[in-house]
Amino acid sequence: MTDTLLLISLCAVAATATAAVLVRDPARQALVLSVLGLALAVLFTVLQAPDVALSQLAVGSALTPLLILLSVRKVRRRGRREEDGR
């Protein structure tokens, strides 16, 4: 039974990782990265590594999106100001 579960979570991680690469816009990529973190956490749990899964959940669910979106916001504000400046 665990093999099928392992197979499913591996497929989920593979699919999400590919989606993360294919999505080009950083804000939308942060969303897919958040789901990739969830899929990775399931994979680690199925492989009996709860500590690693907990680290992935703690960092990937709220911290990484916050950091990415704040960076996107800063870059976008600078971009908009350059257009106004010209």
């Binding site: 709860p50 500590d51 899964a53 907990l54 680290s55 703690a58 960092v59 911290l63």
Partner: peptide, 9 residues
């Protein structure tokens, strides 16, 4: 499962 790093975050 857990520890200093996970709890700190």
């Amino acid at each position: 499962p857990g520890g200093g790093f996970q709890g700190g975050v």
